[in-house]
Amino acid sequence: MGRRVIILAIMAVLIGTVTLIGCGGDGEATGTLQFHANGEDFVREGFVSKDGWSIDFDHVYVHLEDITAYQTDPPYDPHVTAIIDSDVEVGLPGAYTVDLAEGGEDADPILVGEVQNVAVGHYNAVSWQMEQASSGPAASYSLVIIGTAEKDGESIDFTISIEEEYRYCCGEYVGDERKGIVQDGDTADVELTFHFDHIFGDFDVPLDDHINVGATGFDPFAELAEDGKVNEDLASLQGKLSAEDYQTLVRTLATLGHVGEGHCYCDKQPQS
């Protein structure tokens, strides 16, 4: 009788130990990861282009797919490669057409979606596809910019649509705070940032600043206006813009995606 009790006790101890070891894994702690899209103040408040056009945006639609956040160690460097070697990755299922101009001047970045019960840790890389939408306000385009530009009493309503698709691979967010650090039971976020000053330039910085040197500005688009309206896509712009302006536009579109102020690797260059 006593021997049986001892054997049972030993077995119970072993089972308990194995159970405790099994429960002690790293995968237990989880949190929530949110994905935001941000056109920054340039889109929400409007701005003056490098060539003096005061631009206000009614809508800036981007169509996003394959949005993924990664934990990488060593941290992913977008200056080197598009290959993100990750330990943990979290994908946001679905496709989203987001209006970056939504909500007015004081609006927060747009919440694209969130994934719950993700592994804790630092999501220090993110990638996404900017693809043609199959339906909705950006149908057949990956990017649609709608707004009004004014200069010296002239007003131009413009719609610039981009059908080319891009994949942006980005490292860690660069900004006022560090993002993407998920702790147990808490919510963290990563941000898909879009820099439209790269296309139009920024009147507030010198003309020889690299942002303005590499930007198309708005003059080339204004020259295409008929009855105060511009409505073009990338294919039509290829035939109407000068070769230099078109190539500049093509280059800037590849640099549109950021993470805060952090740059991204664009691994799908548009056809020129």
Binding site: P75, G171, E172, V174, G175, R178, V205, G260, E261, G262, H263
Partner: peptide, 13 residues
Amino acid sequence: WAVQVRLAGHGDI
């Protein structure tokens, strides 16, 4: 260790 550098809207880490 991470070192972030920012100036006038430009930055990197």
